[in-house]
């Protein structure tokens, strides 16, 4: 049985409708990504108890917590915004949710947690003097101090600068691995999700669009939404390539190869060839170039190691790389 089990949960707000089921195993690091408005933060709020579902149930470690008070759910949450208590210093903030009573134990735990999040010796600081990154580290320490059964992180890094983000996300992953705590991590940044999680859930319009490891989702997306959400790519109507095929075919830019010469299709039976593609744009990406092409009025995206000299190029892709998606 799963550690966290969300069964047929529903929540309606006006025209928005959240409806899904989800499971997470004990000690799992599950990332929830999706565009803004997809309901990922609402899902966290429902688990935390900040919102009540219209129907369905939430079971944590075998206990039904759907109607449980927030305080009794055994969850902890790290928020995107600054939620440290300004009336207390860093240490008091961390001690706030601790269950133990003994003063020295509390102090030691706070000190250890500060060390864990890389803020050794910050205990006496006023929380208003902290930088954004430091504040998020303290939030993390404070959440961990309450010994939660599950830690919910609601876009904890989105208010920070990119280098800082990378830094803290590595710290979070390291903490997960050392403590083995189950984490639900909401983000809209796929790179963040790819780098940090065991398993990713993609949400769209209140539903789960896909679930899997980063590799699976990238390589074998189940639908166009997932395909585009997990990375760049091209989708063109399938009938342009294969007769009698419905929907679209999708490929990633790195799966295509360009040629400045005309290609003979009979030589490349394993491939599909798009000839006469007009080069619309050419962006230098460091490792190579990202080309924007125009094929019969459809835009195609493809990677190339060199910069094409001609205005017109041909493009070939392995047939098996072309995925038929809806």
């Amino acid at each position: 049985m799963a550690y966290l089990e969300i069964k047929n949960i529903e929540k309606k707000y006006g025209s928005f409708n959240l409806s899904l089921s989800l499971e997470a195993g004990e000690g799992e690091f599950l990332c929830i990504i999706g565009p803004s408005g997809s309901g990922k933060s609402t899902l966290l709020s429902l688990i935390a108890g900040l919102e009540e579902p219209d129907s369905g149930s939430i079971i944590l470690d075998g206990r039904d917590i759907t109607r449980e008070k927030i305080q009794d759910r055994g969850i902890a949450m790290v928020f995107q915004d600054f939620t440290l208590f300004p009336s207390m210093n860093v240490q008091k903030n961390i001690e706030f949710g601790m269950k133990m009573r003994e003063k020295t134990k509390r102090r030691n735990l706070a000190a250890n947690l500060l060390k864990l999040v890389g803020l050794e010796g910050y205990g006496k600081r006023s929380v208003t003097s902290l930088s954004g990154g430091e504040a998020q580290r303290v939030q993390l320490a404070r959440a961990l101090a309450s010994e939660p059964g599950i830690l919910l992180l609601d876009e904890p890094l989105s208010a920070l600068d990119p280098p800082m983000r990378k830094n803290i996300r590595n710290a979070i992953r390291a903490i997960h691995d050392s403590l083995g705590i189950t984490m639900l991590y909401v983000t809209h940044d796929r790179e963040e999700a790819f780098s940090i999680s065991d398993s990713i859930v993609i949400m769209n319009e209140g539903r789960i669009a896909a679930r899997g490891s980063a590799e699976e989702l990238y390589r074998h997306p189940s639908d166009l939404f997932t395909a585009f959400f997990t990375g760049e790519g091209t989708a063109i109507p399938a009938h342009l390539v294969f007769e009698n095929m419905e929907g679209s075919v999708f490929f990633r830019p790195e799966e295509a190869t360009i040629s400045e010469d005309e290609l003979d299709p009979s030589l490349y039976t394993m491939h599909v060839i798009f000839s006469g593609c007009e080069v619309v744009s050419c962006e230098f990406t460091g490792a190579g170039y990202m080309l924007g092409l125009n094929y019969k009025g459809y835009p195609l995206l493809c990677q190339s190691a060199t910069k094409p000299r001609r205005k017109t190029v041909s493009l070939m892709i392995l047939r098996e790389s072309l995925r038929n998606l809806i």
């Binding site: 900040l50 927030i70 928020f79 949710g97 959440a143």
Partner: peptide, 11 residues
């Protein structure tokens, strides 16, 4: 969010 944060910490 501040009270919410406190509630999630069990307060």
């Amino acid at each position: 969010l501040l009270p919410d944060a406190a509630y999630t910490l069990g307060a």
